Amino acid sequence: MQDLTQAAALTGPAGGEPRLVAIPRLAAGGRWRVEAMRAISEPMLLWFTKGQGRITIAGVTRGYTAHNAVFIPAGVMHGFEVGPQVFGNALFFGKDCTLPLPQAPHLLRIREVHAQQEVNVIFDMILREMNSDSPAHERATRHYMGLLGVWLERQVAKAAPEQTRPDAAKRLVARYTALIERDFRTGAGVGEFAAALGVTPTHLSRCCRQACGRSAITILQDRRIFEARRLLAETRMPVGEIGASLGFTSAAYFTRAFQHLTGKSPTEFRRSV
């Protein structure tokens, strides 16, 4: 097993140019694409305009509803429910984004009507410029994204007096999810992650259940199986190579684990997507 202190590259879908995607479309091809724990290599802002559900960010689960904005920095593990009544937009800022954006995740409840209208207008203008072939449309897109960054900064500042410092359990789970995101390919188990964090596996799992209602092993398995499904759906890597790249000691062990958690073998899943 590789040393847990070694750095690893960010995982998740590669971030390229900025994209604006309707939230229901994020689940195209399977709700696992949004519900499973994973991180992406670019900042993302979710703006919910209708519906409600739960979202887990850095191992902490909270509810979201209409007129909630959720900012998730690159590399932060997250997953959220997208039911049939959930609508809104997701802005991916791009892997090489240079805008001044928050360094920490935020779930913001936007209660002021003018602030809701303001962000709706900005999203509309971003989408219009992204779809335009007018001169300087790319530059206009960047400027509107900059305005969105300013809007976000102001909303974070407004929310600051209401926000409380996470308790010790939530801070531990946030560190655990960050460590998983870095080292989930190594084959390390919960015991090794707990040791790296200086706690017992029992204490770590108790804190995970308190923060997000899931055990430590469930969070770890969810991250690995998400990556397995992504590789099966988006690449032609052989099943055995995928299992090995995620730290499974044999193709048979990978197949059993995958089937146990998804109800399909890796080959069956690949055929279904």
Rank of each mutant, 00 (worst) to 15 (best):
M1A: 12
Q2Y: 12
A7N: 13
A8G: 15
A9Y: 11
A9P: 05
L10F: 14
L10Y: 11
T11I: 09
G15H: 03
E17L: 15
E17V: 13
L20S: 08
A22G: 05
P24F: 08
R25K: 11
A27E: 00
R31V: 11
V34W: 02
R38F: 12
R38A: 09
A39C: 07
I40V: 12
E42T: 02
E42H: 10
P43Q: 03
L45H: 11
T49F: 07
K50E: 10
G51D: 01
A58S: 15
V60M: 14
R62N: 06
Y64D: 05
Y64P: 07
T65G: 12
V70K: 03
V70W: 04
P73C: 08
A74P: 02
F80R: 03
G83E: 02
P84S: 07
V86G: 00
G88H: 09
G88P: 04
N89Y: 13
N89E: 14
L91E: 02
F92T: 01
F92S: 03
G94V: 01
K95V: 04
K95Y: 06
C97P: 01
L99I: 03
L101C: 00
R109C: 06
R109M: 07
N120T: 11
V121H: 11
V121N: 14
F123E: 07
I126S: 04
R128V: 09
S132M: 12
D133S: 14
S134W: 12
S134M: 14
P135C: 12
P135T: 13
H137W: 05
R139D: 12
A140M: 10
R142A: 13
G146H: 13
G146R: 14
L147R: 15
G149N: 14
G149R: 15
G149V: 10
W151V: 05
E153N: 14
R154K: 11
R154Y: 05
K158W: 13
A160L: 10
P161M: 06
E162I: 05
A168F: 10
A169W: 06
R171G: 08
V173K: 04
V173Q: 03
Y176P: 03
Y176A: 01
L179Q: 04
R182N: 15
G189Q: 06
E192K: 12
A195W: 01
L197I: 00
G198M: 12
T200K: 04
T200L: 07
P201S: 09
T202F: 14
T202R: 15
H203K: 09
H203N: 03
H203L: 14
L204G: 01
S205W: 02
S205H: 01
C207V: 06
R209D: 07
C212N: 15
G213R: 04
A216M: 00
I219E: 08
I219W: 06
L220M: 06
I225E: 01
F226T: 01
E227P: 00
A228L: 03
R229T: 09
L231V: 09
L232A: 08
A233N: 06
E234C: 10
V239N: 03
G243K: 01
G243L: 03
S245M: 07
S245F: 07
L246S: 06
L246R: 08
L246P: 02
L246E: 07
F248Q: 00
F248N: 00
A257G: 05
F258Y: 02
Q259Y: 02
G263M: 09
K264C: 13
T267G: 15
F269P: 00
R271L: 09
S272D: 13
